[in-house]
Computed example of a mutant assay.
Amino acid sequence: MFGSRNARERSVTCIACGDSVARSDAREYDKHGDRWDRRDKEFEHLCKPCFADLCRQPREGLETTLDAAGAGEADRETFLRRFRELSEGDSSVE
């Protein structure tokens, strides 16, 4: 019904570094952005180190930065400009 356990242990190739790793040591990547619709789909894979490097964004201080950039108050253009400047470390935001 769900396939054999051995199918999960096959080797896959990381699309970022090219290393071959056990499927259990990789993360699925769906280039179409719909990983929940699994019918007739083959996934690409990232090894766990590449996944951590490429897919995780730092969130520390995010709420403070959003507030300082005027989230929910400033118009879109102003907010995006301020957010970019704050995120890049340019503290000379108006």
Rank of each mutant, 00 (worst) to 15 (best):
28 E>R: 11
48 K>I: 06
28 E>K: 08
39 R>K: 15
33 G>T: 09
42 E>C: 06
26 A>D: 04
34 D>A: 07
31 K>R: 13
29 Y>M: 07
24 S>R: 11
40 D>A: 12
36 W>S: 15
19 D>H: 03
33 G>S: 08
40 D>I: 01
41 K>A: 06
20 S>Q: 09
23 R>S: 09
48 K>S: 05
36 W>H: 14
27 R>L: 10
31 K>L: 04
20 S>G: 04
30 D>L: 04
30 D>C: 10
25 D>R: 13
38 R>V: 14
21 V>Q: 00
22 A>Q: 09
38 R>I: 11
24 S>G: 06
34 D>Y: 09
46 L>D: 01
35 R>L: 09
33 G>A: 11
47 C>A: 10
39 R>M: 11
21 V>R: 04
20 S>E: 09
43 F>L: 02
24 S>T: 11
47 C>Y: 02
28 E>T: 03
34 D>W: 03
23 R>G: 14
41 K>L: 07
23 R>K: 15
27 R>C: 07
26 A>I: 01
23 R>I: 00
48 K>P: 01
27 R>G: 04
33 G>I: 06
28 E>A: 06
31 K>G: 11
21 V>L: 01
38 R>D: 08
41 K>T: 13
28 E>N: 08
47 C>P: 07
38 R>E: 13
33 G>E: 05
45 H>A: 05
41 K>C: 07
38 R>C: 09
40 D>W: 09
35 R>W: 08
